[in-house]
């Protein structure tokens, strides 16, 4: 069993290596893409700073605290985007019928799809998120306790897991239809954008959606209440900031179950 997992990982390493070399063939374009991905988020950050220069605060949170949310969301979304690139380009696999190839290989389907694509340009997003997160931590002056020090990496890992699972769901839907990918963009990009602001500014139904359907609130906003020592205007029980890993794991397991259902449902486009 162990040796089989080892073999699968070795194959994945090779597949990923090939993808990386392929991407660097058009060098100028490659560099522009990394810079551009960095820049797209940078421009969004400038927009947020411009708004704060006029308003000062949103929902009782100042610019440093919102930057913390932003950094947390961007870092984890960028890493998830990098790891889950195979999912974001999955619709072409279905379109062209190449998923058949995945099915006949003796390696798990999830692992193959993950390894089939690794867009390094997404590093630009993650890098920018890390920089903002670092600056925000310096700016808000978090009171570091052992608990907070230990919990921050757990929160980041949970958020990455949740976003990867979200990309996986986006890909899974392609087993049924490839025309609705834009709806799922609203959840991935929309969700990570909404996580950049404190959850309590949204209307009740949207808050509920972000907590109990796509639990982004559990991995970004609620843990931040604890990390930044902010009061909870929603009046949720005191332990909810610590549910980030639980929520992410539950969501990822649901996504995996959905994936298996999708693979069973798959009918090839080829003849």
């Amino acid at each position: 069993m162990d040796s089989q997992i080892g073999a699968e990982l070795a194959i994945c390493r090779r597949l990923v290596g090939a993808r990386l070399r392929g991407q660097m063939q058009y060098r100028g374009s490659f560099i522009a893409q990394i810079a551009g991905n960095f820049g797209v988020n940078f421009v969004e950050l400038i927009a947020i700073l411009i708004l704060f220069s006029h308003f000062g605060a949103i929902g009782g949170w100042d610019v440093g605290e919102v930057a913390f949310l932003y950094g947390l969301s961007c870092t984890s979304f960028g890493i998830a985007h990098l790891l889950g690139s195979g999912f974001s380009s999955f619709s072409t696999l279905i379109h062209q019928g190449t998923f058949d190839r995945v099915l006949v290989r003796p390696v798990g389907t999830l692992l193959q799809v993950l390894a089939a694509e690794m867009q390094i340009r997404r590093l630009g997003e993650a890098l920018q998120g890390v920089l903002v997160l670092g600056a925000a931590i310096g700016f808000v002056g978090i009171e570091w306790t052992v608990g907070r020090l230990v919990y921050l990496p757990i929160v980041l890992a949970s958020a990455v897991l949740l976003y990867v699972a979200l990309f996986a769901i986006e890909a899974t839907v392609c087993f049924w239809t490839t025309q609705a990918t834009e709806v799922l963009n609203a959840f991935t990009y929309g969700g990570s954008d909404m996580a950049q602001y404190p959850l309590h500014i949204y209307d009740g139904w949207l808050r509920g959606l972000l907590l109990f359907v796509v639990p982004i609130g559990f991995v970004i906003y609620l843990p931040s209440l604890y990390l930044l020592d902010k009061p909870d205007p929603l009046g949720l029980p005191g332990f909810v900031p610590f549910l980030a890993p639980v929520a992410a794991l539950a969501f990822a397991m649901a996504a995996a179950a959905l994936w298996r259902l999708g693979v069973r449902h798959y009918r090839s486009t080829g003849s």
């Binding site: 949103i58 025309q179 909404m194 500014i201 949207l206």
Partner: peptide, 24 residues
């Protein structure tokens, strides 16, 4: 699908601006 996405982002940006105006 596109209209759904437009609606989601429209609601998102509207919520953000509304909160900014209320805070100040």
């Amino acid at each position: 699908a596109g209209l759904f996405t437009n609606a989601v982002f429209g609601i998102f940006f509207s919520s953000v601006y509304r909160a900014f105006y209320q805070d100040g």
